[in-house]
Amino acid sequence: MACKICGPKLSLCGLVLSVWGIIQLTLMGVFYYIKAVALLEDLPLEEHHSSMESFITNVETGYTQNAYNCWIAALLYVITLVVSGHQFWMNNRSSVSM
């Protein structure tokens, strides 16, 4: 496991981005899950709805779907965090040993 792909800058960038991504996307997932009205505009909805009921079910599936999507993205950022953290550590270690 001693492969070094990214340089110090890229790994730091990945580290910062993934920490931000994890925090924000997890929170957004929670907000979608509790159906925050502020995020209503950010739902996959069709233009026209036949009835109020179909609109509501549509919105609700949209909310849960987006919640899961946010969490999936957050999970991907966890992986990014691990990878870039490892790379960062490798970079640091190699620079110290020099």
């Binding site: 981005l17 931000w20 991504g21 924000q24 996307l25 505009e41 950010d42 739902l43 996959p44 949209g62 779907q65 987006n66 899961y68 999507n69 946010c70 969490w71 999936i72 993205a73 999970l75 991907l76 950022y77």
Partner: peptide
Amino acid sequence: LLRKGLMSTDFQGGIFLYIVFAGWA
């Protein structure tokens, strides 16, 4: 940007969101 990542109706949206989020950030 970010809204584009939130507009898919299935689970691929998560991966798409992952990429779009980086651009938005």
